[in-house]
Design a protein around this nucleic acid. Structure first.
Lengths: 352, 352
DNA sequence: TCCAGTTAAACAACACTGTGGATTAAGTGG
DNA sequence: CCACTTAATCCACAGTGTTGTTTAACTGGA
């Protein structure tokens, strides 16, 4: 419909390599055999054999023991070599800069959270600090094993062009070519992403899932049909400004009764969690999700309240047993979820 | 992330053929040259040449005049041969069966709307009628030029498995293997789709768009990131059951203040359209859409009211000029939009 | 201990994809 | 008439996954 892009033989090779790599990653530490890869990918055994050979030569895969025999030669198990490649992930928060290194398996190394004043300090000082931290993070690592850096930022922004729009309350950052600036400073390919969207890439999960980000505002990162959804202007996920109650309080966006405004005005955390639950139930039903991951500062502060309440509201609002099968969880990486997702954005290119 | 499917050389060929075909379709009756196709697809001129040759032999493309010379040999323009292939589209409505034939360019031939009683008549009678109509529709057409039939139905349903769930108010249809039944009766490959989702395929459009379907209920069909979104249980688009006002009237789904309930309770059509506008504004903002198409019986009855009001509400709710660029329109195929989309589902396979 | 049977993985020849360089087709303009 | 330009094709080729065959490694019964 849109991306009528042709593919050539090297695209084909890369695509299949990514498919195999992705399947091996999904298998985790247990490993998978070549036969299983062939069956799951639809490729022939011979093709898998060749692809695995190439990936092994590149150091991305390794053999890890054998499976049990079922009457013949036992399967040779393959696993990812997590530390064959790295990606840097960063989150520019209003008052915190988070930086970390992620390996191929999504493992976090050397996470750091540094207090900053995003609005007051302005881009130069913050980005210099970022570069310094990245330098520390990559000290001693061969540069050709570092795929790049992903930077998550509050929106709105232009993800494709790599530039920021008017970040609320931080005019100095307006129009900044963030991706270019970062590349120039740290010497790595840089990608930028809205914080809530980055969050959804922080861990593997269902092809139809959302990351609900409770920080200063309310945002959502969406993976639908197996693909990250950014929308026409790369600003999808404005979950917080869905009208939930036309009689509700006025929101900073100008409208009345946005989820975010109602949530912020709730008298107790329990009540706020119920409001969130309503919004999440809407989301689940509209997009037919089967997984919702909660993250962000507010969730980290009170994971149990949010988890329990959101589950309750969903059970209440979606009584059909078919719809009950929605996994609601808290992002395992906790306060690093968004930065890890930013790194995941970079790693994602290897996995298709 | 999910579909780690491998691809082989024939997938590659089909993919590129679809890409080229899709570009030619997008060019419309003006036509495109091979050089332009090469540039747009990223393929080499030679590859495009070969692909066009194959497609021309299959009768799908034809040369249609020459462009103007820019100092050298003028470009040979290519266009789709619309009637090289056909697809049948059908919509099972509660009180109407719509059947039509669509060509490759999305042109409608021989549309028919027949009064039925979906719930009372039951599957056998309705499907026999469908088969009869399809027979009439395809009389004299070589069968190998008919790609298949798409059938749109009220949800919920399992699109992948091709079976219906409990269609509200029509228990006789519950659990019916609709795709199989249709194939058995009309002798064509059959695909099924939720009516609102089918609607979004009724015409070409933005890669991030929604079809908002106002019929007995309110549904939405979503194309995001260039792909139709069906969700985990292939029931995405439950737009009507988004809570819009917790103090609103009780909905047939059990919740209170769903968009659908508030909409249905509106005293005037103007008021109903405003409610719809609120819901659409939520949708646009959440998913960052740049195109919304309105369709369904209620819209056909009063297109102007809905069009104007929805545009007004969006302008009001999304004041940022960046967000203003949302095209709101009424489905050009009018009452045939959903059936045409069902046919489009089948045709879509040719275009990737 | 041997050996037929079974399953996994690799080897070898091959078909078919798009690619790159050279060639032909069909115009423009002096 | 001819140099020049642009479009499209011809031809040899590199590289992908595929098919058919062979080797590796284990099970289990004689």
């Amino acid at each position: 419909m849109s991306q009528a892009a042709g593919a050539n033989l090297s695209s084909l090779r890369d695509h299949n390599a990514a498919a195999v790599l992705s399947l091996v990653r999904a298998a985790g530490e247990v490993g998978v055999s070549r036969v299983e890869l062939a069956r799951a990918s639809g490729l022939t055994a011979q093709a898998v054999s060749k692809i695995v050979h190439r990936l092994t030569e590149d150091g991305l895969l390794a053999e890890a023991g054998r499976g049990v025999s079922t009457g013949g030669k036992p399967r040779t198990l393959l696993t990812l070599v997590p530390q064959a490649r790295w990606a840097v992930g960063a989150q520019l928060g209003r008052d915190t800069l988070t930086v970390l290194r992620a390996d191929l398996a999504g493992g976090v190394a050397a996470p750091r959270r540094i207090p900053i004043e995003l609005a007051d300090w302005g881009p130069q000082r913050v980005l210099d600090l970022l570069a310094e931290e990245v330098g520390r993070l990559l000290a001693g690592l061969p540069r050709d094993r570092v795929l790049g850096i992903g930077v998550a930022s509050p929106g709105p922004l232009d993800q494709r062009a790599g530039l920021l729009h008017q970040v609320t309350g931080a005019p100095a950052w307006d129009g900044l070519r963030l991706a270019e600036e970062v590349t120039a400073r740290v010497g790595l390919p840089a990608l930028i992403e809205k914080d809530s969207t980055a969050g959804v890439l922080g861990a593997l999960g269902s092809p139809n899932r959302a990351f609900v980000h409770l920080d200063h505002g309310l945002g959502a990162g969406l993976v639908l049909g197996g693909a990250v959804q950014r929308g026409a202007r790369t600003n999808a996920g404005e979950f917080g400004h869905q009208t939930l109650d036309p009689a509700g309080p006025r929101c900073r966006c100008g409208s009345k009764g946005c989820v975010e405004a109602v949530w912020a005005a709730a008298p107790t955390r329990e009540a706020a969690a119920r409001v969130l639950g309503e919004g999440v139930a809407n989301l689940v039903r509209l997009l037919d999700l089967d997984e919702v991951v909660l993250g962000g500062r507010e969730v980290v502060a009170a994971p149990d309240v949010y988890l329990r309440t959101v589950r309750d509201v969903i059970a209440d609002r979606l009584p059909d047993p078919e719809w009950q099968r929605v996994s609601v969880s808290v992002a395992p990486a906790g306060p690093d979820a968004v930065a890890l997702g930013a790194a995941g954005l970079v790693l994602g290119r290897l996995f298709g």
